[in-house]
């Protein structure tokens, strides 16, 4: 099975299992994530976006089906080797600490450093590179608790960059940001995908921006999960079925949702 996809899912069923019951969230998901592409994941609240991201990042197990990372089953990777393929940016709040921005980014080098975590010249280069690309030079000596949400989001992206993985997965990186910072994060991720040849997947509720800037989109609804280029999705009328409310309609001409 040879594809150029970095990550691929085959008939993936996702959900949670507990001792007594199995909760299905979404089924039959077939995705292919390729290098150099910015891919956004959209869908209503509670539809299972986070569950999907957690499943393909191996945080929770799949109910059935397979996730392939570089043509190998993701379960065959050790945590250490997985950390060199895949980095994440989550919505979870960081525990309070005295970490500075550059120390936080340096933690991204963990999978490569020795037992005590000493940074080599190469590690320092990667860290500086991540700081330069995300344009946060002015923040690096500040404590991360002292910077704004928008700045912190960039720092977390820089941390994932320092981890130097072909695939970066982000869970709602633009939530809580104003339009200016949303656009900045979108543009940054777009640049990383197109210029640095990363494969970037992230979930978002900013559908208008996603349509304008993503190379591909994954749309999740209760009935289906489809992956395609934004223009094709518009033509197929996929967005019309995104929200089950007659008052929200998708305007094909402007590529955005309108409230009647």
């Amino acid at each position: 099975m040879i594809t150029k996809a970095i990550l691929k899912t085959e008939n993936l069923n996702i959900g949670y299992t507990s001792k007594k019951s199995k909760i299905d969230i979404a089924s039959n998901i077939n995705l292919e994530l390729e290098a150099g592409k910015l891919i956004t994941l959209i869908g209503g609240n509670g539809i299972g976006k986070s569950t999907l991201l957690k499943t393909i990042t191996s945080i929770i197990p799949a109910l059935s089906g397979e996730v392939y990372l570089s043509d190998n089953k993701i379960a065959t990777y050790t945590p250490e080797s997985l950390a060199q393929y895949l980095s994440i940016v989550t919505t979870e709040k960081l525990p309070a600490s005295n970490l500075t921005v550059s120390e936080l980014i340096a933690l991204g080098r963990h999978p490569y450093t020795n037992w005590i975590g000493n940074l080599t010249e190469n590690d320092l280069n990667h860290i500086q590179n991540a700081i330069n690309i995300t344009n946060i030079n002015h923040l690096q000596f500040k404590k991360y608790s002292e910077i704004s949400d928008g700045q912190l989001q960039k720092v977390m992206i820089a941390r994932a960059l320092a981890q130097d993985t072909p695939l970066i997965i982000l869970d709602e990186p633009t939530t809580h940001l104003d339009l200016f910072h949303k656009v900045a994060v979108f543009k940054l991720l777009k640049k990383l995908a197109n210029e640095n040849n990363k494969c970037i997947l992230f979930s978002t509720h900013d559908i208008d921006l996603a349509i304008q800037l993503s190379d591909e989109m994954i749309v999740m609804t209760e009935e289906f999960c489809i992956q395609d280029q934004p223009c094709n999705l518009i033509e197929k009328g996929v967005f019309d079925s995104l929200f089950k409310d007659e008052n929200i309609v998708f305007d094909k001409q402007y590529g955005k949702f309108i409230v009647k």
Binding site: L86, S87, E92, L107, P111
Partner: peptide, 10 residues
Amino acid sequence: LGENYARSLG
């Protein structure tokens, strides 16, 4: 960074 990030770092 919390347990999830730690896990993602291997």
